[in-house]
């Protein structure tokens, strides 16, 4: 069975742990708060958040920072539910 990228318990590594403290940036707080708001509205629960994160392509998953994964998941789930049209967020950014 292929091991899923998020299942870190089965990916041995010797990498040291970066223990530096990091204050959450505004956009990270915003992403967290948006996901909470979507959850309150019944549009996205914690299991959906995780499924969205775990559906990331493995390379992207490993490259992304924590809240980049959340953002990817929120967009994925919202497109699935028809709240966002595919590409709508990209269009807003150009």
């Amino acid at each position: 069975m292929e091991r899923a990228v998020h299942d870190r318990g089965v990916w041995p590594t010797d990498m040291p742990i970066d223990r530096s403290e990091h204050e959450l940036a505004d956009w990270e707080l915003l992403t967290d708060a948006l996901v909470s708001a979507l959850s309150s509205e019944g549009l996205m629960n914690v299991d959906e958040l995780r499924r969205g994160i775990e559906s990331m392509p493995p390379d992207e998953y490993e490259r992304a920072s924590y809240y980049e994964r959340w953002l990817f998941s929120a967009e994925t789930i919202l497109v699935e539910k028809g709240v966002l049209a595919p590409g709508e967020l990209d269009a807003r950014l150009t």
Partner: peptide, 9 residues
Amino acid sequence: AAARARALE
């Protein structure tokens, strides 16, 4: 991602 989060909001 910062601009993306703001655009999503």
